[in-house]
Write a protein that binds this DNA or RNA. Structure first.
Lengths: 214, 214
DNA sequence: TAGATTGTTAATCGATTAACAATC
DNA sequence: TAGATTGTTAATCGATTAACAATC
């Protein structure tokens, strides 16, 4: 077994490629070149080939890539050839939206447990899931062999939930609270910041009349 | 006026710094060093100083940075010293969650119009907003001088909504649909991918027993 | 002054791209 | 074979970090 150093940006792009390949496949397109993928997703052809080259040789010189095959390979590389059960903590509006988010199911993710500590929310239904008290997290994680948790609680509660998730053996956390979480090195954490990407836009729009200090 | 080349990663970090500074300010902390900021948000001290240096000299040698002042400077750099009215298209669960998302308001964003083309949804209330038909987008954009739009429609409808937003004069689009949008060069577009960050986690978890083709 | 920390330069590191041999 | 496109190396580009003079 080799440890493979792959830029995180490559993984992000792989995810985009896979969606473009699904799109091509739905349209019955059988073969695609790195140039066509590049054009379709807005990167360079060399980038596409380099990204794929980390994981193997999937194409045929002079011809291109088989859409179905490449799609399957890429999904496998991303770990999406298996089903991923998830738990989610924080049954607010965002939590609700994620529980009903079709995009997760499309990619093999399935939320199997929703938790909150607010008595008003416990027992309520979100889609076909019941909101449980945090006490029951360990039980559900064990039952479904869950490895990944999603945090949609307010910022001030996010660290506490993280600690609980780590204690209950989760290996990775997707955090929607705009706060930096502390966890042991071996726990994979990524933030989804609902607002930061928007702030890049406001930066870009407002810098039009920005005078740097010189 | 100078055009300033700043890495997008710097802007993303600035957003994180500003939140950490707010956190310090709430705790009554007056002065902070680049090392403390670095520690607090998980980057290197040199990175913090370099990021700030793009925009001016905000610190005092031997002392550090004044928390309140630096916070204000950084928010100003991000364009968050003004209010940003937004329109949102797609009154589904995600759209609903974003309309009620406190994180936007905290940063000066305010959704002033929600649109859909589904007759069942039009006229419904989301918080204190009424869902309008897409027909009324031009009117609302003009009324509130909106520059930024949010897309929360399904992937297949996202391009159409983009075209409409561009036609109606929006300058920036935040897209939550997992699809690459086409728009003129001068339109700023960023995607928020609800699922891609999750896929980085599954990649990392599954690569533990990944055998690269050699 | 001595100690601390900034602002900035130069060195390093890593990712992207250009170019081309391999080969279908 | 001629044309096309991959896989891969080397060159380029850009971002991060180390180091230190400036200075509070």
């Amino acid at each position: 077994m080799k440890t493979l150093k792959v830029p995180e940006a490559t993984i992000t792009r792989l995810s985009v490629y896979s969606r473009f390949l699904e799109y091509l496949d739905q349209r019955g397109i059988v073969t695609v070149s790195s140039g066509e993928i590049a054009q379709g997703v807005g990167v360079s052809p060399a980038q596409v080939r380099k990204d794929l080259a980390y994981f193997g040789e999937f194409g045929t010189r002079g011809v291109g890539y088989n859409v179905k095959d490449l799609m399957r390979y890429v999904l496998k590389v991303l770990g999406l050839d298996e089903l991923w059960p998830l738990v989610l903590v924080g049954a607010g509006n965002l939590g609700f939206a994620l529980c009903t988010y079709k995009g997760f199911n499309d990619r093999g993710f399935s939320i199997v447990g929703v938790f909150d500590n607010n008595p008003d929310k416990i027992g309520k239904k979100i889609a076909d899931l019941e909101v449980y008290h945090l006490d029951r997290m360990a039980e559900i994680i064990a039952l479904h062999n869950v490895k990944v948790g999603i945090i949609t609680v307010p910022s001030h509660a996010a660290q506490e939930v993280t600690d609980l998730m780590v204690k209950n053996g989760l290996q990775a956390i997707l955090n929607y609270a705009p706060v930096v979480l502390n966890a042991p090195e071996n726990i994979e954490i990524r933030n989804v910041d609902m607002s930061t990407r928007l702030e890049i836009l406001t930066f870009n729009l407002s810098k039009k009349d920005y005078n740097p200090v010189t």
